[in-house]
Design a protein around this nucleic acid. Structure first.
Lengths: 244, 244
DNA sequence: CGATATCTTGAGGAATCTCAATACTAGTGG
DNA sequence: CCACTAGTATTGAGATTCCTCAAGATATCG
């Protein structure tokens, strides 16, 4: 397989949407620990691109030449079984990082959910910069640790929670992450479809749909237009999520 | 809660089993990247302890003052739901690392499965050492990334694999890890009980038991004494694990 | 406004769980 | 050395959650 080049290999891609200086998610991401001087060094090795909805950013098995930072929009990461069964391992929103890889290949596929802007770093150049700025290295380590903790929560969800608990946990997670990005925590926007939610929670689309209906019937949520969910009784949803 | 001290708070613990110089798993672990000089610096801040089977090393919510390296034996990490449902997020064998934490608290409980020797580092001192030896920092980052990839595999397993596929995947994983530690890859030792296997795979003990019986009946494994499993047809087990 | 996707709802089925009984294993004390 | 006990594993029968397949409703987009 030839070296991967996202811009050349993708359709629906635009380049250089905004520079790092005006990055809206800088405080949330890797760049938070760098001062303006250092950011400009980072800006030298970064390319900001805009990708339409439903496009592949990289595929499982591709050479892991780049790492990425989502600045706006929504992306998803997933792994497949040979027969097509799919597990989404994470959704990414503005400020989220992806593409870290131990091997020289990506361990999962990354696809946009909605139109998304991403900044892309060549891994080799980032490695060099990490040597130069130890706090960058430290920051990436910290992000990886955070992701690891989230992965463990997701294992608990997948292995031990009921459909009802999974959906409630999912809504709380989206709400909390929206708040962390400085957006309103309610109502919650669902940029992804039922199929994606199902593949993230280890369910089928039908069960996801039925469970939303059921939570609506019990009065804890309300389904608004534009795929948004009103968390009517946040406390109750929290309790459902934790299986209380 | 007072500062946690494993040695004082635990029963079944012995101290200083062996020094770093003769550590049997050094090439597998954090220490692999350090030379003898640097190892001796690490040895200054490490305490090696022996813990009997079925003892808690630290609990979810405890102040995360230490990080640990298992040098022999088996441990497990788990998270609980309020009603007692449990998800084991990982088993640890010689060479494995645990206790990394973003917050100041552990995100999971760690318990020994069999008698285990562990070396313990005070996190604050390790942080200092990381500043001094950037390659130590790099090494920990790499270990965290590897763990993250494993967590994603486990999500695929928990969300999308059948009981049969889960058990097959589990056996392959144990076999591969034994090989990486320089042990025979077959037969596979199962130091943990059925309940632990169930809580790791998102199943019940009964289903685990039935699935072992079923794999035995189809002739791909054989159940030996001392909780060991003979992988008779490794290729077939691999295929079952991947859902082919 | 029609065509196509997606979402919701329904009915029946399958995998796994729950509850219960039996078998095995390992450690203990006679 | 063997019987006893306690814990663990296996097996069985029935219940349940979630899945599969299928149809209808709603939303989206040109």
């Amino acid at each position: 397989m030839p070296p991967f080049d996202m811009v050349r290999s993708m359709t629906g891609v635009g380049v250089d949407v905004h520079p790092c200086g005006t990055c809206p998610v800088r405080p949330l991401t890797v760049c938070a620990v760098l001062d303006d001087e250092e950011i400009s060094r980072l800006a030298d090795i970064v390319q900001t691109v805009r990708v339409d909805a439903q496009h592949t950013i990289f595929s499982e098995g591709d050479p892991a030449t780049n790492v990425f930072n989502v600045t706006s929009g929504t992306a998803k990461l997933y792994k497949l079984l040979p027969d097509g069964r799919r597990q989404i391992t994470g959704f990414l929103f503005g400020g989220d990082f992806m593409g870290l890889s131990v091997n020289e290949r990506y361990a999962y596929t990354a696809e946009t959910v909605s139109a998304t802007t991403i900044c892309r770093f060549a891994r080799r150049k980032l490695d060099t910069l990490m040597d130069e700025f130890p706090k960058l290295q430290r920051r990436l380590f910290s992000l990886a640790s955070t992701e690891l903790a989230a992965a463990q929560d997701q294992m608990l969800l997948l292995g031990r929670k009921t459909a009802r608990e999974k959906i409630a946990s999912f809504l709380i997670m989206l709400s909390d992450r929206a708040a962390r990005r400085g957006q309103r925590d309610n109502p919650v926007a669902l940029p992804m479809g039922r199929a994606d939610i199902a593949d993230y929670l280890g369910l089928t689309t039908e069960t996801v749909s039925r469970t939303f209906t059921q939570l609506k019937s019990s009065g804890v949520i309300s389904l608004l237009e534009n795929n948004r969910v009103d968390l009517i009784d946040r406390t109750a949803i929290h309790e459902i999520a934790e299986g209380v």
